[in-house]
Nucleic acid binder design. Structure first.
Lengths: 193, 193
DNA sequence: TCAGTTAGGAACCAATCAGTCCAAAACGGA
DNA sequence: TCCGTTTTGGACTGATTGGTTCCTAACTGA
C-alpha cells in the first residue's frame, strides 16, 4: 500500500517504558523520549498520538510484563508455600536495588505523581496494582498460615502486603539506605512466617 | 535600617507548603507559588533564593510540623499502649482521605519524585522519614507485645511499619478506593494486636 | 529632612515545553 | 515505471518554564 514503518512499535514502546521508568511521567521530556526511542517527532506523534497516550500504552505494557512477571512469581507452584513466593517478590525488589537499579516501580512512581490529577492514568495504575494484589491474594491462599483466614481477612491482608510493597519500592526510589530496605523485607518475612 | 518586609516569611512558607503539598515539587509552577503565597517574583526570590531552596525550607517546615505532630501522637502517653498510638496515626491518615484530603504525605510524594535525581532533597526526605521511623520505634517500645523484641528486631519492625505508612499514603494520593485503604489500616491493626 | 538600604513590582530573558505542519522520501500495487 | 499512500525529519509554533534586572517605593537612623 504505502511506505511501511521503519521501526517496530513494540520495540519503541519498550524503550519508551525505560525512559518513563527512569525519569517519571512529567520528568521525561519529549526530546528524552525521542532520544531514547530513536525516532523523530513526526514518527512518534503519528504512531502514539501524544505523550499521555504513549504513557498509557507504556503502563499497559508494564502491566502485561513487569506486573505479570510478579504475578507469575506469586503463583509459581514450584515453591509450594505461598508466603515464600511473596517473599521471593520482596527479595527480588531488594536485589534490584543492591544491583544498582534504583528506579523502583513504574506504577508506584506514577501513583505518587500524575495519578493525583489525571483520571485515566489513575485508573490504569489502580488496575495494575489491583492485578498485583490479586496475585498476592492467591499466594496467601497457598500459605498454610493464611489459607484458613476468612475471604475478607485474607483480602485485607493482601491489601496490606501490597501497601508494604508500594512503600518499599517508593523508598527504594528515594534512595533510602539499603539496611532500612533490607529490614523491611526481613520483617515482612517474619510477619508472614 | 531599611524598608521592612510587608509579609511574614513564616506565613508565606506555610502557604508555599500547601501549594507543594497539593501539586508536588515539579508540578508547582512559579505562578502557582506566587499566587498561593500572595507575593510577586521579586519578593519570593529575595526572600527564598529560588524554587529548590524554597522547597527545602518547606520540607524542613513539614518535618517540624506534620512529622512532629505524628511523632507526638506516637509518644502520647495518655494512650498507654504504643501499638494503639501507631494505629491512631494510621487511622488519622485514613480519616484524612475520607474527609476529602487526597494529598497524601508531602515526604512520600517527594520520595517518589525529585528525590530520585536531587541529592539534597533526598537527604531531607530521608531525614524526615527517619524521624517518623524513630517515633514508631519508640511507640513499639511501649507495646507489651513488642517491647520484648531485640533492639534489631524492633528496629526492623519499625522500618516495616514505616514502609506500610509510605505505601498507604502513596496509594491514598493515587486515589485508590477507600475500601482498600481501610483494609490496609485494619490489617496493620491485626498485625500489631 | 535626608542619606542609605532594602522590599516590591513588572517588564524582560533565554530555554524549554508539548504539539503542528509540510515537503520530501520510500514504499506497494498496478 | 508511475501513481497513491504513508512515513519521516526537521522547521516551526505559541505557551510556559524558572530566573534576572532595574526602577521605584518605603522604611530607618542620623
Amino acid at each position: 500500500m504505502a511506505r511501511p514503518r521503519s521501526f517496530d512499535t513494540d520495540d519503541a514502546l519498550e524503550k519508551a517504558m525505560h525512559v518513563f521508568w527512569e525519569r517519571g511521567y512529567e520528568g521525561a521530556s519529549l526530546p528524552d523520549l525521542l532520544d531514547g526511542m530513536g525516532l523523530t517527532r513526526g514518527s512518534l506523534y503519528k504512531a502514539f498520538t501524544d505523550k499521555k497516550t504513549l504513557f498509557l500504552k507504556v503502563l499497559e505494557r508494564y502491566e502485561t510484563q513487569a506486573v505479570q512477571a510478579g504475578v507469575a512469581m506469586l503463583s509459581d507452584s514450584t515453591a509450594p508455600n505461598g508466603a515464600e513466593r511473596i517473599m521471593a517478590m520482596f527479595k527480588g525488589s531488594y536485589q534490584n536495588v543492591v544491583e544498582g537499579d534504583a528506579r523502583g516501580c513504574l506504577l508506584c512512581t506514577a501513583a505518587a505523581g500524575p495519578c493525583n490529577y489525571d483520571e485515566e492514568i489513575a485508573k490504569s495504575v489502580s488496575r495494575g496494582l489491583g492485578t498485583l494484589r490479586d496475585g498476592i491474594y492467591v499466594a496467601l491462599g497457598a500459605s498454610p498460615r493464611h489459607a484458613t483466614l476468612s475471604e475478607a481477612e485474607r483480602g485485607a491482608l493482601a491489601d496490606m502486603v501490597l501497601a508494604q510493597y508500594v512503600g518499599l519500592r517508593t523508598m527504594a526510589r528515594a534512595r533510602i539506605d539499603h539496611d532500612t530496605l533490607h529490614n523491611i523485607v526481613r520483617s515482612v518475612g517474619v510477619m508472614l512466617a
